[in-house]
Amino acid sequence: MLSQQEISDRFEIQDLLYHYADIIDRKAADELRDVFTADAHIDYSAFDGSVGDLDTTIDFLKQALPAFPNSQHLNANIQIKVNGDTGEGRVMCFNPMEMDMGEGKTHVFMLGLWYVDKYVRTEQGWRIKERAEVKSWKFNTPDFMTF
Rank of each mutant, 00 (worst) to 15 (best):
A40Y: 03
A40L: 02
H41S: 11
H41W: 07
I42H: 00
I42A: 03
I42C: 02
I42R: 01
D43L: 06
D43P: 07
D43N: 13
Y44C: 01
Y44W: 10
S45F: 06
F47I: 12
F47E: 01
F47G: 01
D48V: 00
D48A: 10
G49W: 02
G49N: 03
G49P: 02
G49T: 05
G49C: 03
S50G: 09
S50C: 14
S50A: 14
V51G: 04
G52I: 04
G52P: 07
D53V: 05
D53W: 03
D55L: 10
D55R: 08
D55C: 01
D55Q: 15
T56A: 15
T57Y: 02
T57P: 00
I58F: 07
I58D: 05
I58L: 08
I58T: 01
D59E: 14
D59G: 10
D59W: 02
F60K: 05
F60Q: 04
F60S: 11
L61W: 01
L61M: 12
L61P: 01
K62P: 03
K62C: 08
K62R: 15
K62A: 06
K62D: 11
Q63I: 10
Q63W: 01
A64C: 01
A64V: 10
A64D: 13
L65Y: 08
L65S: 09
P66V: 05
P66E: 06
P66L: 02
F68G: 07
F68D: 08
F68N: 07
F68A: 05
F68Q: 06
P69F: 09
P69L: 11
P69I: 10
P69T: 09
N70W: 11
N70S: 09
N70R: 14
N70L: 13
N70T: 11
S71L: 03
S71R: 01
Q72M: 13
H73I: 08
H73W: 04
L74M: 14
L74P: 02
L74N: 10
N75A: 12
N75R: 09
N75H: 11
A76Y: 00
A76M: 07
A76V: 00
N77I: 06
N77Y: 02
I78S: 01
I78F: 05
Q79Y: 08
Q79A: 14
Q79H: 13
Q79G: 06
I80E: 04
I80D: 02
I80Y: 05
K81W: 04
K81L: 09
N83W: 02
G84Q: 08
D85Q: 13
D85G: 13
T86L: 11
G87W: 04
G87I: 08
G87D: 06
E88W: 08
E88N: 14
E88P: 00
E88S: 14
E88T: 15
G89M: 10
R90I: 15
V91L: 13
V91H: 05
